[in-house]
């Protein structure tokens, strides 16, 4: 048996540079999709605004006496909540690609296996950044006082984004493992509500019943909120920031291998 005449280009070896280029090309695709379909941004733009309005003006007075002081308290928490929710989109988008066969097209190409994952994750970083910008911008309009200064706000955003990057691997895993996008969404909501509401995002943990405090005190979202509040409002941050970083490392160690293994198996 004779081989086909080789195609014009010499066989190319995969290397990190090429893999990065493939990942970036697929990131470009994610961004194109955002531009093509701005409705898909509703969850990261309109939703944070609705949450601010809902919590600050409806519950703010009841919780903190007046809505202004509640805004100071809840906005850093909402940053975390918004980001944690938007990581769900990563899993749903991946699952949709697999479900619709777009992934199989990519996989039949001579590109780095990691490309589609890198593209999905990096593309979502833009979504996360956008949602933080919307949230903080709207907060500023309502008179939020960045008492931690510009650098503190920046550090807070960076920490939250970093956490999102770590957490989204759990979603990559779910997105690759589950059969249908709707399933991913269902599981997502089931997990995200206790994680974000069972924390100090909306109220001081001290006001909760003991059993709930126990949950809140092991919930990573709690540490992240403490750290973000500290950075943005100014205050002690060392302990919560370290705990948050530890959780991020833990998430990465647990879910990156799981996600990659499931990815290789499914794809």
């Amino acid at each position: 048996m004779t081989a086909l005449p080789a195609i014009a280009t010499a066989p190319r070896r995969m290397n990190p540079l090429r893999a990065l280029r493939h990942g970036l090309t697929l990131t470009w695709r994610s961004l194109l999709k955002i531009r093509r379909n701005p409705e898909a941004l509703i969850d990261v733009t309109l939703q944070p605004i609705i949450f601010v309005v809902l919590f600050v003006f409806i519950f703010g007075g009841a919780i903190s006496g007046d809505w202004r002081s509640y805004l100071q308290f809840v906005l850093p928490g909402l940053m975390v909540q918004t980001i944690v929710f938007s990581t769900m989109g990563t899993g749903i988008a991946l699952n949709t690609d697999i479900d619709k066969g777009v992934f199989d097209r990519f996989r039949s190409l001579p590109i780095a296996r990691s490309g589609p994952l890198v593209g999905a994750v990096l593309g979502d970083l833009v979504r996360y950044a956008l949602s933080l910008a919307v949230l903080l911008g709207f907060g500023a309009v309502l008179g939020f006082d960045f008492t931690g200064g510009f650098l503190g706000a920046l550090a807070g955003c960076a920490l939250v984004m970093g956490f999102a990057l770590a957490l989204c691997w759990a979603w990559v895993w779910l997105g690759v493992t589950m059969k249908k996008p709707q399933g991913v969404q269902g599981v997502g909501i089931l997990l995200m509500f206790p994680l974000t509401f069972g924390s100090n995002v909306f109220v001081q943990a001290g006001t909760l019943p003991g059993w709930l405090q126990a949950f809140v005190s092991v919930n990573p979202v709690t540490y992240l909120v403490d750290a973000t509040r500290g950075l943005i409002l100014g205050g002690p941050v060392a302990q919560p920031v370290l705990s948050s970083l530890a959780w991020m490392a833990g998430l990465l160690v647990a879910f990156v291998p799981l996600a990659l293994r499931a990815y290789r198996r499914r794809t």
Partner: peptide, 24 residues
């Protein structure tokens, strides 16, 4: 095939450019 699909949200042109770019 029924499974190796294009991205429905992108235009025809974008889909083909994307593939060309992936093929370097």
């Amino acid at each position: 095939g029924q499974y190796a699909s294009v991205d429905e949200e992108l235009t025809g042109l974008e889909n083909l450019i994307l593939l060309g770019r992936l093929l370097e």
